[in-house]
């Protein structure tokens, strides 16, 4: 983990002006991703996962205000001129969105899109770029790749489109791939295939990856480290095995408990988290989770807990009244 840090997000804040007032989408987030490592970012809808990844990619809405520092591969992305940034994105910093149509152009063939990306970043002639495109489509599990080059995105299924988006993202051998809910819109079987594909390509290319999801099940077997976000902040962060062995933040525990369990009898009520996250334009003075937290004490309403290290330096959480023993808490 240490030594070889590829991405470091330092004290990043994203503010969005809205008719209801300022909306703090990302609230003082610190994160690091080592070269070749996988970070999972987990949290409910609206907690700021996409805004955080867009801050890293420098693809925020125009009106957004960003502060803090984003260091990637030795460069401060906030200081980089737009032209250099554009080169970096798609070359060493790539992204896959939930909806593959966000990154695919509906009026261009798959082949044109792949070849253009390759030629924009690498010095390849047409023949070499075509050959490389076919290889990439084959690598992401697309049958009959030569024929696909002439097809348009709408002629493919959702799963196939996501594979093409991944092929384009991987085309220039990025050092970091950000996958923002790459499988949420897909079926479970296709989801498993896409996640396997990402894991395989990552190992092969020694690429670092950030997987964004709202499902703790997706990150459990597929990440080295997990950051749990709530209301714009990272509220717990730990190596994946340590997190699942001993969750300290009540929110993380609640997210896990809300998943349907395969070993529970049908009709077992799910321990749902009551209510919803707070309105991000009306930040709470105390812990943002306090209105929904079953362990909340008076202090939680008045003071914001800081993200601090627990028994090991790598395991951090922001809570005044952390869960002592995961086994007890579950009982």
């Amino acid at each position: 983990m240490n030594g070889n840090i590829l991405l470091s997000v330092e004290d990043v804040v994203v503010d969005l002006p809205t008719p209801r007032g300022n909306l703090r989408a990302v609230d003082h987030v610190d994160l690091t991703v080592g070269a070749g490592r996988t970070l999972g970012v987990v949290g409910e809808s609206g907690c700021g996962k996409t805004m955080l990844s867009r801050a890293v990619l420098q693809l925020l809405p125009k009106k957004a205000k960003l502060s803090g520092r984003v260091m990637f591969d030795g460069q401060d992305l906030l200081q980089l001129p737009p032209e250099k940034l554009r080169k970096l994105r798609g070359r060493s910093l790539a992204v896959v969105f939930q909806d593959p149509m966000t990154s695919l152009n509906p009026v261009l063939t798959i082949g044109t899109q792949l070849i253009e990306t390759l030629q924009e970043h690498l010095e390849l002639d047409d023949a070499a770029a075509t050959r490389r495109s076919v290889e990439l489509l084959a690598a992401v599990g697309i049958p009959a790749p030569e024929q696909r080059l002439a097809q348009y995105p709408h002629q493919l299924s959702g799963g196939m489109r996501q594979r093409v988006a991944i092929a384009i993202a991987l085309s220039c051998e990025p050092k970091l791939l950000i996958a923002d809910e790459p499988t949420t819109a897909l079926d479970v079987t296709i989801q498993a295939q896409i996640l396997d594909l990402l894991a395989r390509e990552q190992r092969r290319r020694h690429m670092a990856m950030i997987i964004i999801t709202h499902d703790l099940g997706v990150v459990a077997g597929r990440t080295d480290e997990v950051a749990v976000m709530y209301a714009g902040r990272v509220v717990e962060r730990a190596p994946t095995p340590a997190l699942f062995k001993k969750m300290r933040m009540p929110y993380t525990e609640a997210l896990l408990a809300a998943l349907p369990k395969l070993d529970a009898a049908p009709h077992t009520p799910l321990p749902a988290i009551s209510g919803r996250p707070p309105d991000p334009t009306r930040p709470l003075r105390g812990c943002s989770f306090s209105p929904r937290c079953r362990y909340a004490v008076a202090r939680c309403q008045n003071e914001k807990p800081a993200l601090e290290a627990a028994e090991t330096k790598a395991h951090q959480f922001a809570c005044f009244h952390p869960i002592e023993d995961h086994a007890d808490a579950n009982a």
Partner: peptide, 23 residues
């Protein structure tokens, strides 16, 4: 196949990479 594809919230259960490719 459908049961195997369910993502399990347990890091000790490595996802089985046996899911056949194809749609």
């Amino acid at each position: 196949l459908l049961i195997e594809a369910i993502p399990m919230p347990d890091p000790d259960i490595r996802p089985a990479e046996t899911v056949p490719v194809g749609e």
